[in-house]
Structure formats: C-alpha cells, structure tokens
Design a protein around this nucleic acid. Structure first.
Lengths: 199, 199
DNA sequence: CAACAAGTGGAGGCAACCTCCGCTTCAACA
DNA sequence: TGTTGAAGCGGAGGTTGCCTCCACTTGTTG
C-alpha cells in the first residue's frame, strides 16, 4: 500500500478507552465470533455475554444492537481480506483477481452466517457497516481494475456487482467439496474478457 | 380435486381432510404468504395465526415448525415455476433456459425471504422440502439438458449447480433495477457453450 | 488517595415460541 | 336423523431471548 495511507484501518474500529472496558470488549468480540460461527447470525446475545463472562448489560453497552456486534466481528474479517488483497500485487492481473476471489469465497464460507449478509445488504443503514463494505470493495476494485486495464476481464461491470455474485456463493450451505469452486469457475469464465465475435 | 392424478403435483402438498381443518389450513397458508412477503421469513407465527383468524394451537397443529409453514408456502410457488417451465417448450433451447432463469430470478426476488433459502439448503432435513426442490430441479434440468444437447450450453455442470448460482442472485436485496439482470447475464455468459480454443 | 466519570451486571418488563389439554365440531354409520 | 368417537380448535402459561434501567464497582487523573 501507499505510505500516505498508514494502515488499512483508518478508523474502522472504535475501541473503548478504559482498560477493563477494552478487556471486556475484546472478550465479547471473541465470544461473538465463536457463537456466530457455531449458531449463525442469530446466536443468543445472552449466550454470548455468558461465554464472554460478562453481564448482558455490558454487552449492550458496547454493542447497542446485534447489528453492531455483527459489524464489529466483520471488521476483523474485512481487515484480513484487505491485507490479503495487497499481498497479491505480484501476481499477474487475472491470477491476482481469481486467487483473491477464491480466497474470498472459501474464507466467507467458513463464517457463512456473517459473509452472506455482508455484500447482500445494499440498504445497510449502519455507517460503520458501509465503511466496512467500502474497504472490501476498494480492495477488490483495485484487483478488478488492474485486470480490466490488462484486457483480461470484461469491462462492463464493477466490483460491486462481482462482489455480490461471489458473496452469494459464500451463502451456499452444505455444498460438496469442490462444488463452490466449480461455480466460481463459471462466474470467472463469464467475467473473463472475450473478444467480440460471431456467436 | 379430481380423484385421478390431475396435474404436475403428485403428492407435494398433503392437505387435511376435514372441511373445517382444510379451511383453516388454507387461511393459514394465505396469511403466511402475506406475512412472509412483508416481514421476511422470521415473521411472527402468532401474528400469522392472528391474521388467519385462528388460534396459535391450530397453526402448530398444521405446521409443527416454521420450516413446515415455509415449505408449504414454497410449494405453491414451486408449482407455479414448474408449470411455467413446461410452457417454454416451444422456444429454442437456449432461449427457453435463459427465459426461465430470468423468470426464476425475478419471481424469487419478489418473495426474497422464501426464495433465498430454497436452493441454498442442501442439508435440508425435511422430506417435503426435498421433494419440492426436486420438482424445480427436474423442471430446470429438462431445460438445461435440452440446451446442452443442442450444443448451446456447457456440459460440465448440472442444473443443481446452476440453480444454486441463480438462487443466490435472488437473495440479493436492494439491487438497482437492471442490476440483477446484468449479473444474470454474466452467469448466462459463463454457462453458454464455447468451443475450446487457445485461451 | 480522593473523587468522579466510566463501566458493570443483573433484575425485570415484554414479546415470541411452543406445549398441553379441556372443549367443540365434523362426519360416519346405524 | 341421532349418536358417538375422533379430529380439530384455541388459548393459558412455561420458557427463552431481547433490551432497558439503575444502583453498585472500579479505573484514572490530579
């Protein structure tokens, strides 16, 4: 990344200031991550508080709504993905894009409950959520742009759209091993540039 | 209604036999259809019973779980789609497939809460649900097979997979008008047969 | 170490889920 | 047509999860 942009995370996550508050915040984040992974996005908040060893009131102090908690967990994932996109800068444009999308799908598939909602909501009202989405889109856009400029990807689409397509894949549950990969192949095939010819 | 096997639905919906029970069953189905369309798949069951003008116990008698109720509502939609597939038999293979997939997406998008889950669950434990899925897959398979045999669709995939891909599209919320169409274009492009060449 | 702001936790109100069971209604058969 | 058993009905109430509120505790700062 550029040096003007110090880090991938400008002000995504706003942590509490007091030491004990921070501690609880982290504990909640970990507990929520586990609970969401296990039980899906509708995991019981009281259970999460219990796992974290804090009172339910503390949970609500840090995360006024379920959305907020989901968002906070997303942020971790998003930072991971954005970092990963930067690492692929060495690969040829198409490979970088394809590789990253593959990572994206398999990664999101693990945390399916979370990944599914991420790119599916356009009308997300939460601001942090928007920023979070923007971060991923920016990272993906860079890869797509590079591929488009290199003439290996079709130019009549944007990463926002591609992201949705791929995000949908990650929502698929109980797929056979390799199935998602093949579906992604289809999408990638549709996305690859093809010279206009008689069809 | 007739005692002979009348239509596309062999034994999909098992209705209650007593007249009053049947009446309530239908009322619940209508109310649930409305409620799910308005509030999504997590609409309150007690509200549905209230809308239908029956007690909550009656709802549970007919539909032991939310899944069951969702399924029963699906069945109506599925029958519609299957019928529609048959009507496209006159069109050229590719057009029939493309048209039907387009219908599928736009139709499912209306009832997004329902459509999203339909093709996403592979590990659906409910048996009726399975059958329901089979009905759609059978209809879609016929269209895809025809296109494959005519040499206009790639042959290394099955409708199960395509259905998932397209089903994912219908889960997208808040898309701009025409956006879903373009995404479907990409999928269709990837699905269309292309002679193997230097790549 | 004092004082106060920041943070904590859980009791309690509310709503949805679901079960259970006494009452009602249908329809089958004499 | 009347009787009767089974099928169906409905809602009270137990359980659980959501969220608010506020009296108490604890970290921080001067």
């Amino acid at each position: 990344m550029t040096d003007t942009q110090p880090d991938v995370t400008p002000a995504l996550s706003e942590r509490p200031k007091r030491a004990d508050a921070l501690r609880n915040y982290e504990k909640l984040l970990v507990a929520a991550g586990e609970a969401f992974a296990e039980d899906g996005a509708s995991a019981s908040l009281e259970d999460i508080a219990r796992r974290a060893g804090v009172g339910i009131g503390t949970l609500y102090r840090h995360f006024p709504t379920r959305q907020h908690l989901l968002e906070a967990v997303y942020i971790g994932e998003v930072e991971e993905m954005a970092r990963s996109a930067a690492d692929l800068a060495d690969l040829p444009p198409w490979d970088a894009l394809a590789t990253w999308l593959r990572q994206f799908v398999s990664y999101a598939a693990t945390k399916r409950a979370l990944g599914a909602e991420l790119l599916a909501y356009t009308d997300a009202d939460a601001d942090v959520f928007q920023k979070c989405r923007t971060a991923i889109v920016t990272a993906g856009d860079a890869l797509l742009d590079r591929a488009q400029e290199a003439g290996v990807a079709r130019t009549d689409t944007s990463f926002i759209e591609v992201g949705r397509l791929v995000g949908g894949l990650s929502a698929i549950r109980g797929a056979e091993p390799g199935e998602i990969d093949r579906l992604l192949d289809i999408v990638l095939d549709g996305l690859r540039y093809r010279p206009p010819a008689a069809d």
